[in-house]
């Protein structure tokens, strides 16, 4: 157990060190997200000639925050593997005695915590800008995210493993990032084929509970968790297949 905690501590230290070194990048991410939000907000106001309903505004704020959250979650696996591959440090991660999967899991946890904090800040800023204050049950949102986000982690793992073999996969990953707008915007409740799109069911649940105060049966959360589990398992299997391929072809060090 102590060894796992030590690895987690090392990953935390690395995360903080890199965030500090890339302070400009970290801050500019916040600014860019805010600018995009402003463009959307004023664009919507312009289109409706200032007659934006409270419900539309709420949907927009929540939708935008969920999209940034989904994007960070997807990227935390896919881009991390891609980044390590590009940096030429992937082979060293393979020498992790607890297994590379544990470094990825700890990075996911850290990114989840950081992006939760990041999203909270973004939410506060957007609510300040729009003057529309939402009542959010944070532990509930945290719970729904926890059962629905593994689907995106699975997709991220699959795309990350592709980059180990094919190296240049950024264009494809960018498409997925924009595809996540659809995943967040679509309605995944009640159960329909749309619910099986990764994160759609979870995003719908959060959106409906915040904006409409809806409540859901326990079986619905189980369904979301099962969908997530399927994507995560598929992601792990794909990761293992491409990892084996990369190890066979000695592609881990090529960048």
């Amino acid at each position: 157990m102590k060894r796992y905690l030590n690895l987690f501590a090392a990953e935390t230290m690395k995360n903080i060190a890199e965030m500090r070194r890339y302070l400009f990048d970290t801050l500019s991410a916040v600014v860019i997200f805010y600018i995009i939000f402003l463009a959307m907000f004023f664009g919507l106001k312009g289109l409706t000639k200032g007659q934006v309903s409270a419900e539309t505004l709420d949907q927009m704020i929540i939708g935008y925050i969920l999209w940034t959250f989904a994007m960070t979650s997807f990227q935390s696996t896919s881009y991390k593997i891609y980044e390590e591959s590009q940096r030429g440090t992937l082979e060293q991660l393979y020498l992790c005695s607890l297994g590379m999967e544990w470094t990825l899991i700890f990075r996911l946890i850290l990114d989840f915590v950081f992006s939760f904090f990041f999203s909270a800040v973004m939410l506060l800023i957007t609510m300040l800008t729009t003057g529309r204050w939402l009542s959010i049950n944070i532990p509930y949102v945290f719970f729904v995210l926890l059962v629905s986000l593994p689907a995106l982690w699975g997709i991220g793992l699959a795309f990350g493993s592709l980059s180990m073999v094919f190296k240049k996969t950024t264009a494809f990953m960018s498409i997925i990032t924009f595809g996540l707008i659809g995943a967040v915007a679509l309605n995944g409740y009640p159960l329909s084929p749309l619910s099986f799109i990764p994160f759609t069911a979870g995003a719908t649940t959060i959106r409906m509970s915040i904006t409409g105060g809806a409540s859901f049966p326990v079986s619905w959360y189980v369904t979301i968790a099962l969908i997530s589990l399927v994507y995560l398992t598929a992601g792990i299997i794909i990761f293992k297949i491409f990892e084996r391929e990369a190890r066979k072809k000695n592609l881990l060090n090529q960048y």
Binding site: Y22, T89, C96, Q254
Partner: peptide, 28 residues
């Protein structure tokens, strides 16, 4: 390993060593 970067350029030697110790389950 040859051909790999082996270490993280954005971190210092001390940070790198602590991180690599962590990869083997060891603390600072």
């Amino acid at each position: 390993l040859e051909g790999s970067r082996n270490i993280y350029w954005t971190m210092s030697p001390v940070e790198n060593m602590i991180y690599f110790a962590g990869l083997k389950g060891m603390s600072r």
